[in-house]
Amino acid sequence: MDTSGIDTQALAPTGALRAAINIGNPILAGLDPSDGQARGVSIDLAQRLAEHLGLGLSLVIYDTAGKSVEGVTRGEADFGFFAIDPKRGEQIAFTTPYVLIEGSYLVRQDSPLTDNAQVDRVGRTVVVGQASAYDLFLSRELRHAAIVRAPTSPAVVGTFLETGADVAAGVRQQLEMGALEFGGLRLLDGHFMLIRQALGVSRDRDPDLTAGLTRFVEDAKASGFVAHALARHGIQGAAVAPPG
């Protein structure tokens, strides 16, 4: 892995590499029910980076993307794994993406909605996870439908059912799990957004850190490490991002 140009003291001033991990996105990270430990593609990448820098790894766990962003900007963690978004870009400097994830809509079986373009209508409500990439995107893009915010992304489907909203929005695989759990639900075809997942550091850090982490990401993709991590964790529906 190419970690050239990464100043370990600048990236990890405490002497250990502190990685912000959002367990609210099941594509990238989650807690293993057998032992409560964090597992996933994000953790694999964090471990790989720490190994190549010769540092110990400390995982700083958050249950939402918004809290993970705040943790990095407050200095609780040295870097994190985030969906690239212009709003977050005010606080976070991103690498090139390593994974692409679909953002999809979920409705009830008897819903009249059959197409993504039908969602943004007056009188309709869409449930998203608070401060998630979908929240940020739809807050900009929806012109007519109202947004209801669940406390976390995993709570979206439950909030959708409890509130009687018209649509739930989120990671396609997470919505599929909700549809299986509750029944009587279906996903609309296609996706309303394609999320580019990247590494990120606080924007007030040395710009050379972002450049160095970008080289690491590009090497992780080119070497097959990201593809193998997706396969190892049984992730379906996510794709390795193209070369940056």
Results as ranks from 00 to 15, higher is better:
Thr3Val: 15
Asp7Phe: 03
Gln9Tyr: 04
Pro13Phe: 09
Thr14Ala: 14
Leu17Glu: 03
Arg18Pro: 06
Ile21Asp: 02
Asn22Leu: 00
Ile23Arg: 02
Ile23Gln: 03
Gly24Phe: 09
Pro26Phe: 00
Ile27Arg: 02
Ile27Tyr: 14
Leu28Arg: 11
Gly30Met: 06
Leu31Lys: 13
Pro33Gln: 01
Gln37His: 09
Gly40Asp: 11
Val41Phe: 05
Val41Pro: 02
Ile43Asp: 03
Ala46Thr: 10
Ala46Ile: 08
Gln47Cys: 01
Gln47Trp: 00
Leu49Glu: 04
Leu49Arg: 03
Ala50Gly: 09
Glu51Trp: 04
Leu53Cys: 06
Leu59Gln: 11
Tyr62Glu: 10
Thr64Cys: 08
Thr64Glu: 02
Ala65Cys: 04
Gly66Pro: 13
Val69Thr: 09
Glu70Trp: 02
Glu70Phe: 08
Glu70Arg: 13
Arg74Trp: 02
Arg74Leu: 12
Glu76Gly: 02
Phe81Pro: 08
Ile84Asp: 12
Asp85Val: 00
Lys87Trp: 07
Lys87Ser: 08
Gly89Glu: 07
Gln91Thr: 13
Thr96Ala: 15
Pro97Trp: 08
Ile101Val: 15
Ile101Asp: 03
Ile101Leu: 12
Glu102Asp: 15
Gly103Gln: 10
Tyr105Thr: 02
Tyr105Pro: 02
Leu106Asn: 08
Arg108Ile: 09
Asp110Ile: 04
Asp115Trp: 01
Asp115Arg: 15
Asn116Trp: 05
Ala117Gly: 13
Asp120Ile: 04
Arg121Gly: 00
Val122Thr: 15
Val122Met: 12
Val128Ala: 08
Ala131Met: 11
Tyr134His: 15
Leu142His: 02
Leu142Asp: 05
Arg143Gly: 06
Ala146Asp: 15
Pro151Arg: 05
Thr152Cys: 06
Val156Pro: 04
Phe160Trp: 09
Phe160Pro: 07
Ala169Ser: 14
Val171Asn: 14
Gly178Ser: 14
Gly178Ile: 13
Glu181Tyr: 08
Gly183Thr: 05
Leu185Val: 12
Arg186Tyr: 09
Leu188Asp: 02
Gly190Asn: 02
Gly190Met: 05
Phe192Asp: 01
Leu194Phe: 01
Gly200Pro: 05
Val201Phe: 09
Asp208Arg: 15
Ala211Asp: 10
Gly212Arg: 10
Thr214Arg: 07
Phe216Cys: 07
Val217Thr: 11
Ala220Pro: 03
Phe225Tyr: 11
Ala227Met: 10
His228Trp: 03
Ile235Arg: 11
Ala239Ser: 12
Ala241Pro: 11
Pro242Val: 02
